[in-house]
Simulated scan of single mutants.
Amino acid sequence: MTVHIGAEQGQIAETVLLPGDPYRAEWAANKFLSDVVCVNKVRGMLGFTGTWRGNRVTIHGSGMGMPSLSIYANELIRDYRAKTLIRIGSCGGMQDSVKLRDVIIAMTASTVSTPSRGIFKELNYAPCADYSLLETAVASAKSRGVSYHVGGIYSSDVFYDERPDLTNEMERHGTLGVEMEAAELYILAARYGVRALAVLTVSDHLKTGEALPSADRETSFGDMVEIALEAAFPST
């Protein structure tokens, strides 16, 4: 057990999918995994371990924002020896070519600030995904006929942003979407020598103002979860 995760040693798989919402973790585990066991309920942050095509997988909530993600990713890697961590979550589209329900596979994640910023001091570190996961996620999206995009995203440390000037610059420089966790996940993966990727579903759009109703978000996220699973286990 750790301060924030109540699982016993051996209850967390080496491959962990990380939705922000603990109830989305529960939904994904029950929908896609077999032999599901709840392994964490501490502070209401649900985690589940089961199997997918014979492979052990944990789906564990990470909370909202990079500070929360950092807590869970650190403990999963350091204390439970997770080797592959894939964020699955929603994001806001930032380009005209990106539509609601599209999947974004994040190659890089720009940010203003993360919990790791103090380590780098004056250096603007460039967090990026694991290439092997990225490559297999793209192959999965292609084979499934999913509308997908690969490129850079923006990990914001605030939800109610009041920097339209920064949003404009992100859009001008080709940023595909905005979310709140991936940059810190990529930094932690690099620090500990593990693999990380973010596979995101566009749930709303900054330019058009469109947004998926809450009821539609779960039903639209299935492709994202399956792409993440196939990226982690490409030969199964």
Score class of each variant (00 low, 15 high):
66 M>V: 05
230 E>C: 10
18 L>H: 03
129 A>K: 06
50 G>M: 00
137 A>T: 03
75 E>N: 03
192 Y>P: 10
203 S>E: 07
218 E>K: 14
28 A>W: 00
154 Y>E: 07
79 D>M: 15
220 S>R: 10
22 P>E: 13
223 D>Y: 04
70 S>M: 09
78 R>E: 11
198 A>S: 15
53 R>I: 03
151 G>V: 12
205 H>Q: 03
180 M>C: 08
43 R>L: 11
79 D>H: 15
136 T>W: 04
58 T>Y: 06
69 L>C: 09
193 G>K: 08
30 N>Y: 12
106 A>N: 09
13 A>S: 09
139 A>C: 02
154 Y>S: 11
71 I>G: 08
147 S>T: 09
217 R>K: 15
196 A>I: 04
170 M>N: 06
184 E>M: 09
115 P>H: 13
216 D>N: 05
2 T>S: 12
229 L>I: 00
172 R>P: 07
133 L>T: 00
231 A>Q: 08
184 E>I: 14
210 E>A: 14
86 I>C: 02
99 K>Q: 15
211 A>R: 09
198 A>T: 03
125 Y>K: 12
85 L>H: 01
120 F>W: 15
234 P>S: 11
202 V>T: 07
116 S>Q: 14
46 L>C: 01
19 P>T: 07
51 T>K: 15
179 E>R: 09
19 P>E: 03
146 V>Y: 01
236 T>L: 04
93 G>M: 08
109 A>Y: 04
138 V>R: 04
208 T>P: 13
139 A>I: 05
113 S>H: 14
51 T>N: 12
209 G>M: 02
85 L>N: 03
201 T>Y: 05
183 A>R: 03
146 V>E: 06
205 H>M: 05
81 R>L: 10
11 Q>G: 10
196 A>N: 04
231 A>G: 12
116 S>Y: 09
226 E>I: 13
61 G>L: 02
145 G>V: 05
18 L>G: 00
181 E>V: 07
89 G>V: 09
19 P>D: 03
52 W>S: 00
80 Y>A: 03
208 T>M: 11
193 G>F: 11
207 K>W: 01
206 L>I: 12
223 D>M: 02
213 P>K: 10
32 F>H: 14
16 V>A: 06
127 P>F: 04
105 I>M: 05
24 R>S: 09
216 D>R: 03
14 E>K: 13
1 M>D: 10
16 V>L: 07
176 L>Y: 05
196 A>V: 06
35 D>Q: 15
200 L>S: 04
186 Y>S: 05
156 S>Y: 05
11 Q>W: 12
141 A>H: 01
143 S>C: 06
16 V>G: 05
209 G>A: 01
204 D>R: 06
221 F>C: 13
175 T>C: 09
